[in-house]
Design a protein around this nucleic acid. Structure first.
Lengths: 366, 366
DNA sequence: GTACTGACTTGAAGCGCTTCAAGGATGTCT
DNA sequence: AGACATCCTTGAAGCGCTTCAAGTCAGTAC
């Protein structure tokens, strides 16, 4: 039945039209212009009018049309976030960004990459949505392209070094890994291996941090980088590799928590207890690392802080008029948990890691 | 320096204004109306004009302004998705929704709940963005509120039963758990416990499915529901509980994969090998369950299929004029992996689960 | 009483795009 | 050659909101 579904004044199921600014204004008996001013809390309207407009808006259940408002204002209050929603660290950051943005009155749209949706495409969507600024989580887009993008819209790159005039917030990965190596060396470890995270800027930084720290501690001869990638599978494979060596390391620094988790799993299943036989450290302090039965020593990148800085940087450009690019490097924080200990301290202990599990009653770490 | 930052015709860093439809039209020497028609592939424009407009648009790097387009068209091509970005199953679904929506020319915005951002607020954002339809992943919003929301905008609820006139796509959880119990019973298990998932519609359904299936197999006397929630922690705690019982079950059906993972972890660390000493089954077929070293028997809810149905349902309402609510219940699919076997089949086998790990060369399951 | 001030209000002009009735230009049929 | 039908094009009217110059009006200062 053609013609039947035309719905000129978009009405809801009850046949009511969504109230518009004009409706609010009419109800109070003022012009839409005044109503707009009153609602946006701009100077001008008298206190009395403001009050009445607000009341009318509430009664009518008026919600401004973001689309129209954006068009008229020529600027959105919208932050576009590029992420891989399947990466739990990204998920964590996304949630924090959402909150941080809300604090300053901005909204967030998330655009994820998927198998059939690469970064370029995901960013395109964001740009088309007229996002006021973009926050890119660990983008793999080359520097040149980031620079170009940064020319169109304020861009904040999170987590990765970038040689382009865009803003960057990241943590000092070299220092972070350095802290890990120091921690292990302090415990008495000498044979400390690094489980690599594949190609990419982040892995390169952490690898370099490992090498530098080992040299600094006089352990240059023990440097050992095991090939890997940022997944549990790589960690699991590494467990196999390491255990079949004639002289396995006494401690392993993994590129990230996911790899560390895989490693942990592989080790435990093979009968190697952690930390009794081998210490394992991750990176990211992801939710998984915090689970009591995982209890992984790791490095916190302060997702919350990164999110807040990223939003702040975007706002500075947007509302503060900053034009020079800036960079924030957050200090990483070593989080010592139960997956690290001195090398084979007392072999008499039970061989399962059950011993490390925090008793339910003794929670509450500092 | 006041007044300096006014930027009337929003220009990019190179001082170029983002091209508008009028620019494209001018370049070809036609009216904006024609250009619009040509670009939207509407009937009218001649092939020649269409071609020239497309070429000009490409040369200029023209990208339509979604905001203006939305306002003019009175309808967005935007699907709003409510999720908890920290839930990996949601993440999975979100990615699939993104792809499914793209296929039909819709865009997706994700709105996540966080600690400081409840469902209501997250949905509000979506509504304000004038999403054409909403897809809610496992919402905890009460039925009444969902009904009201459904009155304003097409709503598709994913994963949960709802007694309201909104569309629903979910899988048959009772049947899914039934398949699991059957599988275990077929293997010879009689003492099968259920690790609960807390309050909530989904947990209730699965629990009921477990009970029904146990009764159907004549195992009513062995029904045992262990308290829990949908997290690894609960699973880990359950391991403790179960192992200290005088007569631990020979198989455990967990509410979801996360709980199963925690359980698995707790068991293995306590020296109980799986599946030799105890079989474990999860639910969701999450990425984690598929990892070779986890290799968890579980139930696939077909995220991809759910996503496709959800999008299709939304589109039917939007473009197809459907008004009656509809419900799709997908059949769950048991995925048998290495965490299940007959009760203590051969105690002579190695006690670690290493034996179950798939050899790298023998991949490729059906 | 007149001129001026300051505090509010509001009319009107868009934001960039879509839509559609109306107009032009051809081609076809008698 | 005139009357139409057909195909393209386009002018103009918005979508719902913001913005700002211009206007209103009571109050103040001379």
């Amino acid at each position: 039945m053609p013609g039947v579904e035309s719905d000129p004044p978009a009405v809801d199921a009850e046949g009511r039209r969504r109230p518009r600014l004009a409706d609010v204004a009419a109800r109070v008996g003022v012009s839409p212009a005044s109503a707009s001013l009153a609602l946006s809390n701009s100077p001008g309207p008298s206190a009395r009018m403001r009050e009445r407009v607000l009341a009318a808006a509430a009664e009518l259940g008026y919600r401004p049309d973001r689309t129209a408002s954006t068009l008229a204002r020529r600027r959105t209050r919208l932050l576009g976030v590029l992420l891989d929603v399947r990466n739990s660290y990204h998920a964590e950051l996304a949630a924090d960004l959402h909150e941080a943005a809300e604090q300053v009155g901005y909204d967030v749209v998330l655009s994820t990459i998927t198998a059939a949706r690469d970064e370029e495409r995901a960013v395109e969507t964001l740009v088309d949505s007229r996002c006021a600024a973009l926050v890119l989580l660990g983008p793999s887009t080359p520097d040149a392209a980031l620079r170009a993008l940064g020319g169109q819209v304020p861009v904040v790159v999170v987590g990765r070094r970038v040689d382009a005039s865009v803003d960057v917030v990241r943590s000092n990965d070299r220092a972070g890994v350095g802290q890990v190596v120091d921690h292990l060396a302090d415990l008495g470890h000498r044979d400390i291996a690094f489980l690599d995270g594949g190609r990419g800027t982040i892995a390169a930084d952490r690898r370099a941090g490992y090498r530098a720290a080992m040299r600094k501690r006089g352990l240059a001869d023990s440097i050992r980088v095991v090939a890997g990638d940022p997944t549990e599978i790589a960690g699991s494979a590494a467990a196999q590799t390491l255990l079949t060596e004639s002289q396995p390391p006494t401690a392993v620094v993994a590129f990230n928590d996911r790899a560390a988790l895989g490693l942990l799993d592989g080790l435990v299943r093979a009968g190697t207890s952690v930390p009794e036989h081998m210490s394992v450290v991750g990176y990211d302090d992801s939710p998984a690392a915090q689970l009591p039965h995982v209890d992984l020593t790791t490095v916190s990148q302060d997702a919350r802080g990164q999110a807040e800085h990223a939003v702040a940087m975007a706002i500075e450009r947007l509302d503060g008029g900053r034009t020079a690019s800036s960079q924030v490097v957050l200090p990483p924080r070593l989080v010592v948990r139960g997956s690290t200990a001195g090398p084979r301290p007392n072999v008499s202990r039970p061989t399962t890691r059950t011993s490390r599990r925090r008793a339910p009653t003794t929670r509450g770490e500092p």
